[in-house]
């Protein structure tokens, strides 16, 4: 009787089995630009998994990013992907959605892009209940440009432009979205893998303006400037100090420097989107004269 010895197997496949997320990624673009220990990668993984589980037609799914580290996500997802200008992912996505209403449009970008330079678009898209899923990665800092202060930097945290600590009050992002009219608002940290994936899967299937904020470490800048250790230290800290409180009053979701972060789903409302309101209104006012934009697009594509 012969026994196969460890180390003598010869039946390895020529290629290793495909990673389960590979079908959703542009594998030819891997490795990505993100630093070791960055929290963005897990969010991409969670989103890809959620997309697969949601059953949406991936040919009809688009992802739009602005500028910054998180803004590079559109370049790695194997969907129709648009890497746009700084702050303008939401209005670009608005045109995309309204131009071809059958598209599933996700905006994937960072805190600086979406609430700093793009803050005006963020609140107006929420006000209109534009049918967009917005994944906002909040690392409390402008990462790609070198660690400058963001509208989300907690009080007293150091950044490269607040070297003596931040004295500007930050945005409470879920509250900003909810008070502007968002239909769905949730927050997790990038180490809440299963909860985040579940939330994204649910959010993909909801409609209207949906915000999912994900807290992620920036080990290269935010953690280093604030002596918070490695990326894994940051992820573990945010995760372990998270307080899960579904349905929490969004006024109470402000984030203090290195304090517990309230996570969960805070808003989940059925309400008509911009396009539904438009169709309903014109249908009522104009009757049979109203010709809505075809789901497949205008004029030659209709």
């Amino acid at each position: 009787m012969s026994v196969a010895k460890v180390g003598t197997r010869t039946d390895f496949p020529a290629e290793p089995p495909e990673h389960p997320t590979a079908p959703y990624l542009r594998m030819e673009r891997i490795p990505h630009v993100w630093c070791p220990g960055c929290g963005i990668g897990t969010v991409v993984q969670c989103y890809a998994t959620a997309l697969g589980r949601s059953g949406v037609d991936l040919d009809k799914a688009s992802v739009v990013s602005g500028i910054g580290c998180s803004g590079r996500a559109a370049g790695y997802l194997k969907l129709d992907g648009f890497h746009t200008t700084h702050g303008r992912a939401i209005p670009f996505a608005t045109g995309l959605k309204l131009g071809r209403p059958e598209l599933q449009v996700t905006v994937f970008s960072g805190d600086g892009d979406l609430t700093g330079i793009g803050g005006n678009h963020f609140i107006h898209a929420a006000r209109r209940n534009m049918d967009l899923l917005v994944i906002l990665i909040n690392n409390f800092i402008y990462g790609m440009t070198g660690g400058q202060n963001a509208p989300t930097t907690p009080l007293s945290a150091r950044s490269s432009t607040m070297p003596f600590g931040n004295f500007e009050p930050p945005f409470n992002v879920p509250h900003l979205a909810a008070s502007s009219g968002a239909a769905y608002v949730a927050r997790w940290t990038c180490l809440h893998i299963r909860r985040l994936t579940w939330t994204l899967e649910e959010a993909i299937q909801r409609r209207g303006f949906r915000l999912v904020e994900v807290i992620a470490p920036c080990p290269t800048l935010y953690s280093r400037l604030n002596k918070l250790g490695t990326g894994l230290d940051g992820m573990s800290f945010y995760h372990d100090n998270a307080v899960i409180r579904h349905g929490a009053d969004t006024r109470e979701l402000a984030i203090d420097f290195q304090k517990g972060i309230v996570c969960g789903k805070f808003v989940d409302e059925e309400k008509p989107t911009f396009s539904e309101l438009m169709d309903e209104h014109y249908g009522r006012v104009l009757g049979e004269k109203y010709v809505p934009m075809p789901a497949s697009g205008g004029w030659q594509h209709g």
Binding site: P91, F92, T94, G95, G99, R100, H124
Partner: peptide
């Protein structure tokens, strides 16, 4: 579809987005 955007930055961005649907 006409949409009055929140500013001209958004208007132009929306136009570029819409054009990528072939419109």
């Amino acid at each position: 579809t006409f949409i009055q955007m929140e500013d001209e930055l958004a208007s132009m961005a929306a136009v570029v987005g819409a054009s990528w649907t072939g419109s």
